[in-house]
Simulated assay, not measured.
Amino acid sequence: MLTLPTKQQGVTLIELMIGIVIFAILLAIALPNFSAFIANSNIRNAAEAMQNGLGLARVEALRRNTQVNFSSGVDSSTDSSWAVGCTAASASCPAVIMKRVAAEGSTQAQVATSEVVASTGAAAGTTVFTNTLTFNGLGRVIASTLATADNAVYDISNSGGGTCAVAGGKMRCLRVIVTPAGQIRMCDPALTVSKPTDPQAC
């Protein structure tokens, strides 16, 4: 009587080792791209939060018909933390309406503020803006926190992610611009030269 050979169940040690080697190779290939993805996500989260916070300050100023401050770097001068609050704090208008800490999705993000001439984009000669913008009841930025011919600029980068694309690196650093009229937009400074008609370009 013939006996059929039994089927092998499971995997052999050699098959397991080959699988581990293939997985390690794929992980080594994907890891640099994954690190760049995480760093870019940090920048995007911080920039969107900055834009949302500025929008909140403007809306609260319109809604309450009073001056409302947006202050960046409240935890550290270069991190992505910010706070929105009334200039003249009262029971109906608190000194802190909302606050965001840097640990909320953008721990590595760094923010640099500057003031530029609106018509040319060049650095302003005499600056008023530091890290606080004040919106009035009409939704405009008051002249004591931003000169009427200049824009406030928040440049968001990543401290551990490397060099920004505008300087030849891989990081997609972003910029949030606020005009004296209270318009707020986010853009990509790397697109200024290569694609000047791109809506995302600064």
Rank of each mutant, 00 (worst) to 15 (best):
G53H: 07
G53C: 09
G53Y: 06
G55Q: 13
L56V: 04
L56P: 01
L56Q: 10
L56Y: 06
R58Y: 03
R58F: 01
R58H: 05
R58T: 04
V59S: 15
E60A: 05
L62F: 05
R63E: 11
R63A: 14
R63Q: 14
Q67A: 11
Q67N: 15
V68W: 04
N69R: 13
N69V: 00
S71E: 15
G73F: 08
V74Q: 04
D75H: 02
D75Y: 02
S76E: 13
S76W: 04
S77D: 09
S77P: 08
T78P: 02
T78H: 02
D79I: 10
D79T: 11
S80L: 06
S81A: 12
W82L: 05
W82S: 03
C86L: 01
T87N: 10
A88L: 12
A89Y: 03
A89I: 06
S90N: 06
S90C: 06
S90M: 06
S90K: 04
S92C: 00
S92G: 12
S92E: 09
P94H: 06
P94V: 05
V96N: 11
M98H: 12
M98V: 14
M98T: 15
K99P: 00
K99F: 00
G105D: 10
G105S: 11
T107R: 12
A109E: 10
V111I: 15
T113K: 10
E115A: 06
V117K: 13
V117I: 15
A118I: 07
A118D: 10
T120D: 04
T120C: 06
G121M: 07
G121A: 08
G121R: 11
A124E: 13
G125L: 13
T126H: 03
T126L: 11
T126Y: 01
T126S: 15
